[in-house]
């Protein structure tokens, strides 16, 4: 009997506390994502020359454990005009988000800091192939992410690692 009463006391005390649950789909009642949260990978945009950082070098594609990405490379027109340092640039890029396991290996192996784990994490789509994301969509995701956290081009590999310095968000327009 005593053991049961002891248990009931715990329940009683918990009843008087405020709830700890969050209401997921409702926008204002969700929990806040951590700064380091790893959502789907997104390609970043280089605002200084207005082109993607990605050169389509395929390093990330070879290192992805699930082979969920593909890319092609082309000559960079901006380079021939002398505006950009990148000789090659990505032509097309596709990630099958349904296969991505959010491991972050692609971010680590990229030599150009061109890919980053965004905070995007919702998978439900209206179309069956809605999760095969192409280059413009990936860049959109990246731009949104850059704006959200005030991404800096000089920053260390993973955004969460260093303190974000707010020097007027250089290179990122409002």
């Amino acid at each position: 009997m005593i053991g049961n009463i002891k248990g009931l006391m715990v329940t009683l005390r918990t009843m008087l506390r405020s709830p700890v649950t969050a209401q997921y789909p409702e926008m204002d009642k969700r929990t806040v994502l951590a700064k380091r949260f790893m959502g789907f990978p997104a390609l970043l945009w280089d605002y200084s020359v207005d082109e993607p950082y990605c050169t389509g070098c395929m390093v990330c594609i070879r290192d992805c454990p699930t082979q969920c990405m593909s890319a092609t490379m082309q000559d960079n027109l901006l380079h021939t005009e002398g505006k950009s340092k990148r000789r090659k640039i990505v032509e097309s890029f596709e990630i099958n988000l349904g296969r991505c396991i959010l491991c972050g290996i692609c971010v680590d192996v990229c030599n150009f800091d061109a890919i980053e784990m965004s905070h995007e994490h919702e998978l439900s789509k209206y179309k069956r192939d809605g999760n095969r994301v192409d280059l413009p969509a990936l860049l959109d995701m990246g731009k949104q992410f850059q704006r959200k956290i005030g991404w800096q081009p000089t920053q260390a590999k993973n955004v969460g690692a260093t303190e974000l310095v707010d020097n007027g968000a250089k290179g990122v327009p409002e």
């Binding site: 929990t31 994502l33 951590a34 700064k35 380091r36 949260f37 790893m38 396991i101 959010l102 491991c103 972050g104 290996i105 680590d108 784990m117 590999k157 993973n158 969460g160 690692a161």
Partner: peptide, 26 residues
Amino acid sequence: ELFESVTGARMMHHYFWIGGVKEDLP
């Protein structure tokens, strides 16, 4: 929740790497 802020993922972390950990603690 703590794991999410440290490793970026709640369950499949991929945080311990050969030779150390992926990044320092926040």
